[in-house]
């Protein structure tokens, strides 16, 4: 697990130096906020997965909605 966490942190560092840092020079505040949010969200999810937390899948939720609420399915 330590290797996975280190790998995720390495990606976080990479995103910061390769993607976020150059934006500071361009003074694009909006882009920094959007990218930071996406990166933070992705890194958090990756860390949760690494720690064994079972993440809910939006696709399984959508499938249940289509099947059980809209009643659209070939098999019940």
């Amino acid at each position: 697990m330590i290797i996975i966490v280190l790998f995720i942190l390495l990606i976080a560092v990479l995103i910061y130096y390769q993607d976020i840092s150059p934006m500071k020079y361009n003074k694009s505040k909006k882009e920094i906020i959007i990218l930071s949010f996406v990166a933070f969200f992705a890194i958090s999810l990756a860390l949760l997965m690494a720690f064994g937390v079972k993440l809910p899948s939006p696709m399984e939720g959508l499938d249940s909605f289509v099947k059980d609420v809209l009643k659209l399915s070939y098999k019940g």
Partner: peptide, 20 residues
Amino acid sequence: KAYVLSIGLLITIYSLNIYS
């Protein structure tokens, strides 16, 4: 280009987690 790595990470997580 700056968003590729972050979205790539999200796609990886989603592909591992999409169906149990």
